Structures are given as C-alpha cells and as structure tokens.
Amino acid sequence: MQTTDTDLLFQTDKDIKDAVRRERKLKVTQTIGRPISLSSKVLRVLVDGDTAWTAESGWQARAIDLKTGTTRRLFRGHTGPVTCVALCQGQAGPVLLTGSWDKTIRVWDAATGVCLQTLQGHSDFIKSLTILPGPALLSTSSDRTIRLWDLRPLKDGAEPKCVQILRQHTRPVECAAWRSGTPDYPECIVWTGDSLGVMKQWVYDEKAVSLRLDKELKSHETSVSQLRSCAAGVWSASMDNTAMLHRLDDKPIIRITESTYIRSLLPMEHVDGAEHLLLTGSDDENIRVYDVEDTERGQPRLLATVPGHAFQVSDLSVWSDGEKWEVLSTSFDQTIRRWTLSDLLHPKSIPEAEEPEEEDKNGGMTAEEARELEELMSDTD
C-alpha cells in the first residue's frame, strides 16, 4: 500500500483500518455518555468541585467546567505529553502540579495559568503525581525512582524541596496511591506499582515527610497501570488483563480477569447508592461494572459492560454537584464522557456504524467496476 499522506506513514494496514473504525464509532456515539470533545488524548483526570483537570498528550493540561463542558483554562509550557495532574494549596490559592514526558514537574497558579516554578530531578518521564498529607508530593518516574517533595514552602511562595529519593523499584514506577490511618490500621500507607508488575507497600511519616518500605506485595505478571485505595486496602489494575484487591488484613486477594488490558479502575464505596460497585476501564474501549459484594470463586459479579468510547478508557473519576453524581470516563479518543448510575447499569447499545462506500474501498471504483476488473485479472482464456 502506498500513500502520500504523511499522517499514515509508518502505520500498518491494521492501524489505518482501526483508525477508520474509530472515526465511524465516534460519529455514532455522539449522544452516548454526553461527551465533551477535546483536542488531544486524555491520559488522566482529576475532579475538584465543578472542575475537571486533565493531563493530555498534546503537551498541555486543561481545566474544564463540568456544568457547561467548556474549557476554562489551558496550561501550556511542557515540551512533551502531560501524564498526570495534582492540586494543592499555595500562597495565593490553589496550585496545579503537572508531570510530563519532558522529565519536569511544573507548578502553576490554578486561577491564572501562570507557571510559578519548574521542578527538576527526575531523569526520565514523569509517570504519576500524588499529594500526601503534610502536604507532600510523591512523584514516580520511568527512571525507576520515587521522589518525595515537601510542599510546605509553597505557602510562602517558595519552591518545594525534594527531601527523599527511593530506589527500591527496578523498573519504571507507573503509579501510586495512599490511604490515611484508621483505628484498625493507624499508619498512613502508600502503595507504588511498576512496569514489571511489582507492588510495594510503604509507611508514610507525615511529620518527617518520609517513606519507609514496609513490604512487597504479591502482584501482577506485568505493568501495573493504576492503583486506587479503598477501606479494605488497594485495588490495582494491570496490563496482564487483571485487577486485584490487596487487603490490609491479609485475607485472600480478590481478582478480576478480563480479555484485554485493564487501564483504569474506580472503587465506588464513597458514592451513595453505588457503594458495592467497582468500575474498570479497558483497552477494548469498554467500562465494566462489578458488584464487589457478590463474588463467585473470588471474582466479583459482572453487572454491565458499558460501550461508548472509541479508544482505550484511560481514567475514571466521580463528579458530584451536591445533589447528584456522575462518573467521568476519559479516553484516547479525545473525549470525556459522563454516566449516571442508570447509564452504567442499563447501558445503551451502540448504533451500527455505516461502512465506507464501496467505491472508496475499491480505489474510487464502483462495486460493479471492481468486479469487472477482478474478472479481467482472473481470466485465463
């Protein structure tokens, strides 16, 4: 196959066919999940109040008004895809922190979009940012390290300081999660996961702003794509097509197995009316809804498979306006979609997408002309 379209260079026929399929799917799903269309792939989303903060492949972060679906502000300055976002308080109000493939963490005035500081130290892609009590920032990277930054200087307008570098992982550290202490487990616990499937559990000391390795958890066969804490412990999603609940009380692991990579997940235990649900977002472009209180042989019962996106589901979050709530899903299809509980439990089917006209598939010929040419080419008389 030859092409003069530079966008198609170095793509296989399958890649091009998939791109065409996704374009058709986007057209027939314009009303499913009330999509907000963006200009680049959404890698992560953080919801705060009525604002969704997105990390995007287009070298930018974005603040979106969830009531109107419009962009409030763009945060531009990175020289690579923005992989993660986090929020904390600064001297004059909220600050946005962004991590990027350009190996830096940027600190922005969330209200004005002005870049206040650029934090350097990592020697490879930034993979995740997590705000810990203190406040402190935990950053993970493809350079196989975890860095802990003291954010308290931000209150005085000064630059955060890196106070600890941890090198216990032997592969790129993809993600992190934490949970505060409880009467049963008084210590603040942090979990990290890497591209080899290894998960480590840490104890966080807020006063000292430091982490101490507690133990390594039995985990996945390959990359851990996301971690989400819950009352029982931590859920992990992986490229080995599984999600797992690792319990603090050392009871048996609960495991979910799907047919494709699981990119994202969301325990719903703090959402009224959905406390027993867990959502996953996968490479097959679907969201799945599980009942974690109804398990058979350790596998939560699948309640629904929710179609709508036209590319892998990269992240999941919850938005509440005080009266009702919606789940937000993001995707490499450059949309954010919004789902009510009814949408999730009773998903709409996707209308069948129209195939391209036959003359397009045959190099501009009509179907009849293509058949005549085929007959001529195969004529051996």
Score class of each variant (00 low, 15 high):
Pro252Thr: 01
Lys251Ala: 12
Lys215Asn: 13
Leu213Thr: 04
Thr280Asp: 04
Asp250Tyr: 06
Gln226Tyr: 05
Leu279Val: 06
Ala232Asn: 06
Thr280Gln: 05
Arg212Tyr: 11
Ala243Asn: 03
Glu258Pro: 04
Ala232Gly: 04
Leu211Ala: 01
Leu278Ala: 00
Ala243Ser: 12
Asp214His: 13
Arg255Glu: 12
His276Lys: 07
Leu211Ser: 00
Thr260Met: 15
Leu278Ile: 03
Ala274Asn: 00
Ser229Asn: 12
Ser229Ile: 08
Asp250Pro: 02
His270Trp: 07
Ala243Lys: 03
Leu227Pro: 12
Leu278Phe: 03
Glu221Ile: 06
Met239Tyr: 13
Glu221Met: 15
Ala274Leu: 07
Glu216Val: 09
Leu227Thr: 13
Arg255Ala: 07
Tyr261Asp: 11
Ala237Ser: 14
Met244Phe: 11
Arg255Tyr: 01
Ser238Met: 02
Thr280Phe: 01
Arg228Lys: 15
Glu269Phe: 07
Leu248Tyr: 01
Asp240His: 08
Ala274Met: 07
Thr257Gln: 09
Ile253Asn: 01
Lys215His: 10
His276Glu: 07
Ser259Met: 15
Met239Ser: 08
Ser259Gly: 10
Ile254Cys: 08
Arg212Asn: 15
Arg228Tyr: 03
Met268Pro: 01
Thr257Cys: 09
Arg255Asn: 09
Glu275Arg: 14
Leu277Asn: 05
Glu258Met: 12
Asp272Gly: 08
Asp240Thr: 10
Ala232Phe: 03
Asp214Gly: 08
Ser264Val: 05
Ser210Gly: 15
His276Trp: 00
Ile253Val: 15
Ser229Phe: 09
Val224Glu: 00
Ile254Asp: 00
Asn241Val: 15
Val209Ile: 12
Met244Cys: 14
Thr280Glu: 02
Asp250His: 10
Thr257Pro: 00
Lys215Met: 15
Glu275Met: 11
Ser210Phe: 07
Leu265Met: 04
Tyr261Thr: 15
Ser259Pro: 08
Leu227Ser: 13
Trp235Asp: 02
His220Val: 10
Leu227Glu: 11
Arg247Thr: 05
Ser210Ile: 07
Pro252Val: 04
Gly233Arg: 00
Ala208Trp: 01
